[in-house]
Design a binder for these strands. Structure first.
Lengths: 337, 337
DNA sequence: TTGTATATTGGAATCGATTCCAAACAAGTT
DNA sequence: AACTTGTTTGGAATCGATTCCAATATACAA
C-alpha cells in the first residue's frame, strides 16, 4: 500500500489487520491445533500480504532457543577438505532449519575462549569443534557445559561425543583392493608421526594381509615425511630392494604424488608395472595426476552431517558414555590400480 | 555460591546485587560517560563475580542491531581457496566483534532465496555473496534491499559493490617476471572460456610484452581445457614449433601441472630449459610439484577482509557508484623460473 | 545560604515474539 | 432450559536488554 513501509511488519500488525489477537497469529505460525480453518487461512493471507516474518531475536528471547549451531575450527584453513566438512554440517543444519555460525580460532586458546563466549551469548543449540586432521585434543572444560561434538578429533578422556574417520577400515580396504588385483608384495609408505591415521592405516594394512594369508614383511613398510624429497628418496630405495613391491599403498595423496615422481624416474609405469593407491582423495591432486590416482576418501562431508545430526537429534547430556563414532572411508576408483 | 545456578545471570541480577539500577549497569556495559568511577568498579566487580554476559537476543531485540554478517556462497565448495576467503572475512568480522553466519546455496536459486530470508530474520548487518571463481553474476533484486558486497564476482550492472582479483596486473606481473629473467619467447597456455580471468590474464600478457618492447606472437598463445589431456597435447605441440618458447605462462596451477608432464616427456627440464609460471597459488599443487611452482596468488584472504570491512565501515547505501575494487595478485616465488 | 547548572542515578517503557489464563462460544446431555 | 464438556479466542505477562525521563546529588557562583 504505502510506498514508505520503513519498519518491517510485526506480529501486532498481522493481528490487527487480520482482526484477531496476537495469540491466534502465534498459534497459526507455530502450527498449533485449536485454530479453525477459517481464521487460519485468514491469518495466513495477511501474513502473505504483509510479507511478515518473525524476527529471530524476539523468538529467541522468549523461547531461549536459537536455530543456530556453532562451528569452531582449529586452523582448519590449511586443509582443503575443510569445506566438505562445513558443507556436510550446513546441509544437515539446514534440514533442521538451522544455520551455521563460524569461528576459526587459528589455534589460539584465547580466541577459543572468546569463541565459546560468543556461543554462549548467542545461546546456540550446540557447537562442533573440528580439527584439521584426525587427532586427540585437549579442550577447556567449558566444552562440557553445552552440547558439543568433536569432528575429526576426540578428547583423550572420551567424555565428549566425537566422529572420526575409520582409519583401520580405510587402510584395510585399500590393501585388500590391491590384493584382489593379484598383488602380493605391497609396499606401504607411511608417515612418521604417531597420529591416529598413521597407526590406524598400518593396522589396516596388517589386517588385510592377514585376512589374505600373506605374510607381513617389515622391509616393505617405510616411513617418510609427507610431500618432500624424503618420500621421493624412500620410494627409490624401496623399489630398488631385491623383493621389490608390485604395488604401493601411500599414506596420503601428497605422498603418492611424490612416489609417482620417483616411479617415473625409475622408468616404472603406473599401473602396469606398479599399482598405487593413496588416501584422502584430495580431488585437486588425485584427479589431476597422471594416471589419475585411486584413493580412499576421508568422510568429511559425512562427519559434518553426523555431528550436526547428533547435536540436534541425539541426547545432549554429557554422559560418560559419549559415542565415539568412526565413519568408513570409501574407495574412489581412478586409474592407478 | 549456590551450586545450582540453573538460569544464567541477567542484567537485573547484576543491578540487584550491585545495589544500583539496571540503567546504571547498562551504562557501564556500554561504556557511557556519566558513571562515577566508584559505581563503575562496583558494577564491574559484580559482573565478574556473576560471570554475567549480555544475551545477544535481548540486545538485538532492543537495538535492532546484530553483530553478525551473512556469507552466502555459491557452490564455492569445490574450490580449495574457499577457506582463505572465509578466513579473511572472519578475521575482519572478528575485529569488529562480529561473527560470520554461513550458507552455501549449492547454486540453487530457491536456497538462495531461503538464505536471504534467514538473513532478514536474523537482521544481519549485511551479507557477502561469494562465487567460486571470478565471474559476472545475476542476483535477485532483494540483494539491493540490504547491505551487500560481492566477492570474486560482480553484478552485470555494477550496482552492487564488489571485490575481485586484478587479473590484468596478475598476468602482467607474471609475464614481466619471465621477461626480467631474460625470456623473450613466452608461451601462454590459456583457458577456453570467456571468463574474466581468461581475458584479463591475456591482456596482462600483452601489456607486459608491450612494456618490454617485445612483439606479440599469436602462435605462442594457445587455449586448452584445464587439467586434461588437452593441456598435455597442446603443450607438446607448442614446444615442438620451430620458434619454441623458453618460458610458459600457464592459466592456472592445474594447467601448469599438466604442462610439467608434457615437458618432462619431452625431456625438457624446468626451470633450466623452460621456465614455468602458474596462477592461483593452490598450495597443495604448487608447493608439491617438482620443482615447486612459481605462481601468482589469488587474493582470497584479502578479498574476504575487504568485503567485510566495506560492509561495516563503508557506507551501505545502494548508490549507483558502488565501488568495484580489484586487488592485486602477488607473485609467489618457488623454483620453476 | 540560596539558586543554578551539571553529573549521576533509578526505573518505566520498549523491542517482538510466545505462553498462559480466563472469557466466549459451540456442541451434546439430561 | 440448564448444565457439562470441549474448542477457539483475546490479551496480559514475560523473556532481557537499552533508552529516556524525571529525580536526586554535586559543584559552583552570587
Amino acid at each position: 500500500m504505502d510506498a514508505m513501509q520503513k519498519r518491517s511488519a510485526t506480529i501486532q500488525d498481522v493481528a490487527r489487520q487480520a482482526r484477531v489477537g496476537v495469540g491466534t497469529v502465534s498459534r497459526v505460525l507455530n502450527g498449533h491445533p485449536n485454530v479453525t480453518q477459517a481464521t487460519r487461512e485468514q491469518v495466513l493471507q495477511v501474513i502473505a500480504d504483509l510479507g511478515y516474518r518473525p524476527k529471530s531475536a524476539a523468538v529467541t528471547l522468549r523461547t531461549r532457543q536459537t536455530r543456530e549451531i556453532g562451528l569452531i575450527t582449529d586452523e582448519i584453513a590449511t586443509t582443503p577438505f575443510a569445506f566438505d566438512l562445513i558443507r556436510g554440517a550446513q546441509d544437515e543444519a539446514w534440514a533442521h532449519q538451522s544455520i551455521l555460525v563460524l569461528i576459526n580460532t587459528s589455534g589460539n586458546p584465547d580466541l577459543l575462549n572468546a569463541a565459546l563466549d560468543q556461543m554462549y551469548d548467542r545461546q546456540v543449540q550446540g557447537v562442533l569443534y573440528a580439527a584439521m586432521f584426525h587427532q586427540p585434543v585437549n579442550l577447556p572444560d567449558r566444552f562440557r557445559e553445552l552440547p558439543a561434538v568433536l569432528v575429526d578429533c576426540y578428547s583423550e578422556d572420551r567424555s565428549l561425543p566425537s566422529v572420526v574417520p575409520n582409519e583401520i577400515q580405510g587402510g584395510q580396504d585399500a590393501v585388500a583392493t590391491l590384493l584382489q588385483h593379484g598383488h602380493q608384495r605391497i609396499g606401504f609408505i607411511n608417515y612418521t608421526t604417531g597420529q591416529p591415521a598413521v597407526v590406524g592405516r598400518l593396522e589396516g594394512y596388517r589386517r588385510a594381509l592377514a585376512a589374505a594369508g600373506v605374510a607381513y614383511d617389515p622391509t616393505l613398510v617405510v616411513q617418510a615425511d609427507i610431500a618432500s624429497d624424503a618420500v621421493y628418496r624412500t620410494t627409490i630405495r624401496l623399489m630398488q630392494q631385491p623383493n621389490r613391491p608390485t604395488a604401493l599403498f601411500c599414506f596420503n595423496d601428497r605422498t603418492a604424488m611424490w612416489a609417482y615422481d620417483a616411479l617415473r624416474d625409475l622408468g616404472l609405469r603406473v599401473p602396469e608395472e606398479v599399482a598405487v593407491i593413496g588416501f584422502d582423495n584430495q580431488e585437486l591432486l588425485a584427479a589431476n595426476l597422471r594416471p589419475p590416482l585411486t584413493t580412499m576418501q576421508l568422510p568429511h562431508y559425512e562427519m559434518g552431517r553426523w555431528a550436526v545430526h547428533h547435536l540436534i537429534a541425539g541426547n545432549p547430556q554429557p554422559s560418560l558414555t559419549a559415542p565415539q563414532v568412526q565413519l568408513d572411508c570409501p574407495l574412489v576408483w581412478r586409474a592407478s590400480v
